[in-house]
């Protein structure tokens, strides 16, 4: 699988696509999958990241999500945001169709 997180990234969250409809989801602290990045559990450091990734496996086995992976996030203004353009686009929707994807309800992610 492609590398989505920088080596030495401090904060990481875990994302996947939902099996039935492909929608982007994030693993929460109580092991649910949320459509909102703001609900994502944040792991600090490499070991916590690996632990987070391990928690996804049962839901992969249960055919709830596919292709989970860690990605780097940054904390800001009491919230979190994806560090890369790619994950920002996944989180919000295409930058060329601001009416589509989650940004329809979450304006202002793409600036």
């Amino acid at each position: 699988m492609a590398q989505h997180s920088r080596k030495g990234a401090q904060f990481q969250a875990l994302t996947a696509n939902r099996l039935a409809d492909g929608i982007v989801v994030y693993l929460t602290s109580d092991n649910r999958w949320s459509e909102s990045l703001q609900d994502a559990d944040v792991a600090e450091g490499k070991e916590a990241g690996e632990a987070l990734l391990a928690r996804a496996q049962p839901t992969v086995d249960d055919n709830i999500v596919v292709e989970p992976y860690l990605f780097e996030i940054a904390r800001e203004d009491g919230g979190i945001r994806a560090a890369s353009v790619r994950e920002t686009i996944r989180q919000a929707g295409p930058t060329v169709r601001l009416d589509l994807g989650k940004q329809a309800e979450l304006p202002g992610v793409h600036r």
Partner: peptide, 26 residues
């Protein structure tokens, strides 16, 4: 696949034979 009889690894080549990709959003 939806029932879990096929894993993603097993299903992926099958969906790809029929033009179904998993992209960023969906």
């Amino acid at each position: 696949r939806l029932s879990g009889e096929l894993t993603e690894d097993e299903f992926k080549p099958l969906r790809l034979m029929n033009g179904v990709y998993l992209q960023l959003h969906a």
